[in-house]
């Protein structure tokens, strides 16, 4: 069963304040991802890998086509339908951590569970377990992650992404700034998600990681506009 079904999607950016320049990014993107499958996106910088991820997340607006994810067409859905999809059925581990400044790490990680109505003690327990597994020292849990190192912030982001079990995950370079031990933990998390039937679309510059978790690779050049 395909959890992600992209058909004939195109994306252009129109820069109205820079001479109305139109930048075509991709066209005619069609791609499906089955439950338990991990698809890697390949291509040079600027080939549109991140743009495609953002289209799937509903962060960018598709110029045309359909993006059906776990029953919701993200290209046409109302804001509240996209938010419901993100809350219940989809997780996105981006390269950047964006949080309210003074919120403690433990709460940042537990938040995706809290918004689905999980009782607070259960959500915090799950957050503690994941932070431990990702080797974020306990003395940091009560601090805001905004001052953490790059690798620590990335692991907080990963903990936030993996705290729920969802049918769809988007992973943007999840192992980029991690040491060997933590990289291994993240790859295991990905493998466990696949075994549960999560459909994954990812960007992996780390070739060994790519070979280990990806079932298929997609060259972005195919979709060049």
């Amino acid at each position: 069963m395909n959890v992600i079904e992209i058909s004939n999607v195109s994306k252009t950016f129109t820069l109205h304040n820079q001479g109305a320049a139109v930048i075509p990014v991709m066209s005619d993107v069609s791609l499906s991802v089955a439950a338990g499958e991990c698809v890697g996106l390949l291509g040079a910088s600027g080939a549109g890998k991140s743009t495609l991820m953002r289209l799937l997340w509903g962060n960018y607006l598709a110029a045309s086509g359909q993006i059906v994810i776990a029953g919701t067409d993200v290209a046409k859905a109302e804001p509240r339908e996209i938010l419901a999809l993100r809350r219940d059925r989809m997780a996105y581990v981006s390269q950047f951590l964006r949080v309210v400044p003074r919120v403690p790490t433990l709460d940042v990680v537990a938040e995706p569970l809290l918004v689905t109505g999980t009782p607070e003690d259960q959500a915090l327990d799950a957050a503690r377990a994941l932070l431990t597994r990702l080797r974020i020292p306990e003395r940091l849990w009560s601090l805001s992650p905004t001052t953490f190192s790059g690798g620590e912030q990335q692991r907080v982001n990963i903990a936030r992404g993996f705290i729920r079990q969802v049918p769809v995950m988007l992973l943007d370079e999840p192992t980029a700034s991690l040491d060997a031990t933590n990289r291994e933990t993240v790859l295991s998390l990905i493998e466990e998600a696949k075994a549960r039937g999560t459909a994954i679309v990812g960007i992996f510059h780390d070739e060994a990681a790519r070979d280990r978790v990806c079932d298929r690779m997609i060259e972005m050049e195919r979709f060049a506009a």
Binding site: F13, T14, R54, G58, N59, Y60, L61, P79, I82, L83
Partner: peptide
């Protein structure tokens, strides 16, 4: 539209 979409991909 959706807040992050309007801010990150304004039309």
């Amino acid at each position: 539209g959706l807040t992050d979409q309007v801010l990150d991909d304004p039309q």
